[in-house]
Simulated assay, not measured.
Amino acid sequence: MGTDRRDLLQVRTIYAEPAALALPRGQQVVSRWPEAEVVEVESALRIPQVHGADTSVERWVRTKTEVLALGVRKTLTARRNERSANWIAPSTANGCAMACGYCYVPRHKGYANPITVYANIDEVVGYLQRHVARQGVKAAPDQCDPTAWVYDIGENSDASVDARVSDNVADLVTAFAAMPTAKASFATKHVNRDLLDLDPQGRTRVRFSVMPEAMAKLVDVRTDPVRDRVAAVDDFVAAGYEVHLNLSPVIVHEGWLEEWAALLDHLDDVLSPRAKAQCAAEVIFLTHNAGLHEVNLGWHPRGEEVLWRPDVQEVKRSQNGMDNVRYRARWKAVWVQRLLDLVAERTPWLTVRYAF
């Protein structure tokens, strides 16, 4: 089950920084698509043919399918989070082959955001090993984890898809398996069963994002079906991963609670007692953006009918300084509580780590 690399990626062009091509990981990526044209660029994040061009809207999905970028991560910094994870690790990739209508990454990169792979993986792993060592033993439980420092390794990409492009994710899983005081963590909407061949030793948390199937078909473009994601949970637990669920994003519309009730019932029916015992969830209501709304109108206007709802949304400045739209605070508080009550009723085994 799950989409394979051929469905997501048919790479014809690789834009690459010369320094990335000189590294073993860069060479690995190029070797996986030997017939692709390699075009050297000064910066993998500022490619005139890809980023910031209005014409890219018309090629939104095609660009994600046919283009890769290769770069070198210049800044190695772990950023405090304390929501989903204690720290956001330095990215080893940016962008995605999937095309969820609400994804925030295109807001930063311009009109198209194909996968950019950072080839200096050894430097990233070394930095994380030193950073984890400096933290010592976690003194007290928090909402991220009772005992481990949690590092999100997929803030700007989907690590399950990244693992189809290079061994960066495999290297990170292997590195965290040897860190008894820390865990890697990433959210995903793609079932990559190659990850089952790794040995995470319980030190990597996979968070499968789920939402009602009908809504996912509309806005989770090019992702794996929600039922496939749910069906993969037990297999990943058996392979040594910690597996959580992201109830995300929660999109309010007529009948939304009934749809979530059906999904929660499905989770309760199919997950094993072992999976349920180790599972927890994050509940994240939709955040959207005016600029992204305008872009989406050019390639997927139907999705905007549910994502762009000025009648129930308000502008709010995000942590990164962007003006986004979220559900109006007074109504959202009510809706959050209704969903939490539903979780408690239908899946009492599912601990909600946080909801917003």
Rank of each mutant, 00 (worst) to 15 (best):
residue 10 Q to F: 06
residue 13 T to D: 15
residue 13 T to G: 08
residue 13 T to R: 15
residue 14 I to W: 00
residue 16 A to Y: 04
residue 18 P to A: 15
residue 19 A to I: 08
residue 20 A to W: 06
residue 21 L to D: 07
residue 22 A to V: 02
residue 24 P to G: 10
residue 26 G to Q: 03
residue 26 G to R: 00
residue 27 Q to W: 03
residue 28 Q to C: 07
residue 28 Q to H: 12
residue 29 V to T: 07
residue 30 V to W: 08
residue 32 R to K: 15
residue 34 P to H: 10
residue 34 P to M: 11
residue 34 P to L: 10
residue 36 A to M: 02
residue 39 V to M: 12
residue 42 E to M: 14
residue 43 S to L: 06
residue 44 A to T: 07
residue 46 R to M: 14
residue 46 R to E: 15
residue 48 P to D: 14
residue 51 H to I: 10
residue 51 H to L: 11
residue 52 G to A: 10
residue 55 T to D: 14
residue 55 T to R: 14
residue 57 V to S: 08
residue 59 R to K: 15
residue 60 W to I: 01
residue 62 R to L: 12
residue 66 E to H: 09
residue 70 L to T: 01
residue 74 K to P: 07
residue 76 L to F: 14
residue 83 R to C: 03
residue 83 R to N: 00
residue 85 A to N: 04
residue 89 A to K: 02
residue 91 S to Y: 12
residue 91 S to N: 15
residue 92 T to M: 12
residue 93 A to F: 10
residue 94 N to V: 13
residue 97 A to M: 03
residue 97 A to G: 15
residue 99 A to D: 14
residue 102 Y to M: 08
residue 102 Y to C: 01
residue 103 C to Q: 01
residue 104 Y to R: 02
residue 104 Y to V: 09
residue 106 P to T: 07
residue 109 K to E: 14
residue 109 K to Q: 14
residue 109 K to G: 03
residue 109 K to W: 12
residue 111 Y to D: 11
residue 111 Y to Q: 05
residue 112 A to H: 13
residue 113 N to E: 14
residue 113 N to I: 08
residue 114 P to S: 08
residue 116 T to Q: 05
residue 121 I to F: 00
residue 123 E to C: 02
residue 126 G to Y: 08
residue 126 G to Q: 11
residue 127 Y to L: 04
residue 129 Q to T: 15
residue 137 V to S: 06
residue 138 K to T: 06
